[in-house]
């Protein structure tokens, strides 16, 4: 595996090029010069809540996975993010319209590590957090790695891009909690079967902490590597505040504390001390 070093971020005033509601999510396309150009799957961006001219009332940044980077409207590398409105910041983002400005920092964090050999891969994502998996799948296919996708969600409205998934992956498993599409249940229920059938060598996952923990355990049981993209509450998202501790075990076996934003968000699943991580139990 080629380990993902940190990418070099930029901080820019971006502009909304398009906003479109699909199911429960808002898909925002942003012009944020420099962010898309540096993107690697698994990195994220941070936005400030509130228009750049309005001053500072909400100081914490809001983290969003970079979903896709593509040329659009004369811009070489627009950045697409998927927003689920759950609180004041994400609701503000969902209310943005074409032409609105937003402060963007990115890409941030360490990306998914890519295999050097054409090994079998399984990509697991729940809800909006499946966003980084589609560009990851493209890179893996370029390396001749077979890709199996597992997409989960509470319901169909929060299932990301299931149609596109079928174009991207060799096999797709869909699980929803209410059974509105795919199998009824949790991602954790299907992992063993999928990993076995795919003969997985590497499992990539993004989603709530319990899903990541389940992936790390299942991967270990199958003798596969896991790359888990953590979502922890972030404040600065840039590595400055030390507010996002993740208990890990270093290469040397010594227990340490990593920063979710700067040392992550992608960490090896077998290096995270899941039982000591806040929010690891559902």
């Amino acid at each position: 595996m080629s380990a993902g070093g940190p990418v070099s971020p930029v901080h820019v005033t971006g502009e909304v090029l398009a906003s479109k509601r699909i199911g429960a999510f808002w898909h925002l396309t942003l012009v944020a010069p420099g962010v898309g150009e540096r993107f690697r799957p698994g990195t994220f961006l941070a936005v400030s809540v509130g228009s750049p001219d309005e001053g500072r009332t909400r100081l914490a940044r809001r983290a969003l996975w970079i979903h896709q980077v593509r040329p659009l409207g004369g811009y070489a590398a627009t950045v697409q993010v998927v927003v689920e409105p759950v609180g004041p910041g994400t609701r503000w983002l969902a209310g943005l319209e074409r032409g609105d400005r937003v402060e963007v920092t990115g890409p941030l964090g360490r990306p998914f590590a890519l295999p050097k050999e054409p090994v079998s891969t399984v990509l697991v994502g729940e809800g909006y957090a499946a966003a980084p998996l589609f560009s990851l799948a493209e890179r893996l296919r370029e390396r001749d790695c077979p890709v199996t996708l597992v997409l989960g969600a509470p319901d169909e409205a929060r299932l990301l891009n299931a149609l596109e998934a079928r174009r991207t992956a060799r096999a797709v498993t869909v699980v929803t909690r209410d059974g509105s599409v795919g199998a009824r249940g949790e991602i954790a229920d299907v992992l063993d079967e999928v990993l076995r059938r795919a003969g997985a060598d590497v499992v990539y996952a993004a989603g709530p902490t319990p899903v990541l923990h389940a992936v790390a355990l299942a991967a270990e049981a199958h003798g596969a590597w896991s790359q888990t993209a953590l979502e922890q509450p972030l404040t600065c998202a840039t590595g400055l505040c030390h507010g996002c501790p993740v208990p890990v075990v270093g290469e040397d076996g010594v227990a340490r504390t990593a920063r979710a934003c700067a040392d992550g968000p992608v960490l090896r699943g077998d290096r995270v001390r899941w039982d000591d991580l806040a929010g690891a139990r559902s």
């Binding site: 100081l59 922890q232 404040t235 507010g243 501790p245």
Partner: peptide
């Protein structure tokens, strides 16, 4: 020092509350 438990920071109106435990 490892620092304190989470949450270490919280957003307040125009402010940030922090209890990092000085890691």
């Amino acid at each position: 020092r490892r620092g304190g438990p989470v949450p270490r920071l919280l957003e307040t109106p125009s402010g940030l509350l922090h209890a990092t435990g000085l890691p």
